[in-house]
Design a protein around this nucleic acid. Sequence first.
DNA 1: TTAATTTTTTAGACTCGTCTAAAAATACAA
DNA 2: TTGTATTTTTAGACGAGTCTAAAAAATTAA
Lengths: 216, 216
Amino acid sequence: MYTLAEENYLKAIYKLSMLAENVSTNQIAAELATKASSVTDMLRKLAEKLLINYTRYQGVSLTQSGEKVAINIIRRHRLWEYFLVEKLHFKWDEVHDMAEEMEHISSTELIDRLDEFMGFPTRDPHGDLIPDSNGNFKKNDLKPISAVDVNTSGVISGVRDHSTAFLQYLEKQCLTIGKKITVKEIISYDNTVVLQMENKDLQISREVANNLLIAL
Amino acid sequence: MYTLAEENYLKAIYKLSMLAENVSTNQIAAELATKASSVTDMLRKLAEKLLINYTRYQGVSLTQSGEKVAINIIRRHRLWEYFLVEKLHFKWDEVHDMAEEMEHISSTELIDRLDEFMGFPTRDPHGDLIPDSNGNFKKNDLKPISAVDVNTSGVISGVRDHSTAFLQYLEKQCLTIGKKITVKEIISYDNTVVLQMENKDLQISREVANNLLIAL
DNA sequence: TTAATTTTTTAGACTCGTCTAAAAATACAA
DNA sequence: TTGTATTTTTAGACGAGTCTAAAAAATTAA
Ligand SMILES: [Mn+2]
Ligand SMILES: [Mn+2]
Ligand SMILES: [Mn+2]
Ligand SMILES: [Mn+2]
């Protein structure tokens, strides 16, 4: 239906749309590690196919049909990640790159059967919500630790950075999904956050606190 | 490692090598539904990369490293077909096209874990042998029904034609893998084969007999 | 063994997705 | 508000993979 490149652009635009209504050429170029000129070329094609709203120099947003395609790719990505962790016993920091390839397998029948085979999971190994086969999709209610007040408690439920380095760091600190934590203090000098965990206290940087999500 | 196109060419050459030592440009073009001129272009690239032995006008054969790549693709294809049938409950005539896409997922770690997850199956849903992770690969001992003598008995164990139409026909006639049959007669007029099955006799055409394999 | 036919290769062009370099539009600052 | 910096687009090129049309080589037939 859509080419590999088109799918990757739509997914990138969808992701960047979480942060701001309109997405800029440079943002997309950074996200896909390509050049702004390449992005402009692709934007014309996607606009032509009515997948994005695009006016020169004004940035882009997904149309309804573009969003539908993007959500579908995300569904596939997250279901494959779940499969890799739950069935093939990969670790949560190992699955992203494989899922980047697998998400482009086109059969919807396949992905629906996979969903059923795994018992219709609702979240992927990183805590991200998995859209259902109609593209329905609860909005995430999670907050970055950096956004909560001192003395707030919650359960670690997701991450914003999916890089191997970050996930391995979290694993090492036992900051994995399901762990209960309390924000004890925010050191004003550099915004280091002091967490109270079950059996220890732990300091994390502003950077880490920004990328680690909790359910209150 | 290799592009989609390169992998498909190597696989096609491997398949055609079963029939004859050297594979011709036109054979490859037919197999891949492309044009002879496109094939020639690709053959130069594959020869450049030492994946095939190629001299102009002489046809091609796989080098050892080309064969290794091809066998690996076949391993991936057959394991995914097994997964689709055994775990996701697709029918044997539904899985080929999906596997054509999935076979290009590159991670060997993934495919080895998938293999383990399924208990190291030795044959795919069509009776074809699945190479192990080292590319080791028993040669198929099966014979087309058209090649055995009258009064020979055997067990249906594989097919040569993987098309949906053929597989659905077999299903309908109960000519599925594991069924015991005896060749009762070959009608000389048009080489129709009369089979004795468990509870009935059945006539199949030369064409069908050619594409249906039995273990003696 | 020459001529006709078939197969294979070459020549040149096209699409897709990418790049660099330069021009145009926009945003920001003095 | 006028000039500078940044962002975005255009222009032109390239590699991968494909195509058509024509030339060259090999095969088959006369
Ligand atoms: Mn991921
Ligand atoms: Mn994920
Ligand atoms: Mn198949
Ligand atoms: Mn098969």
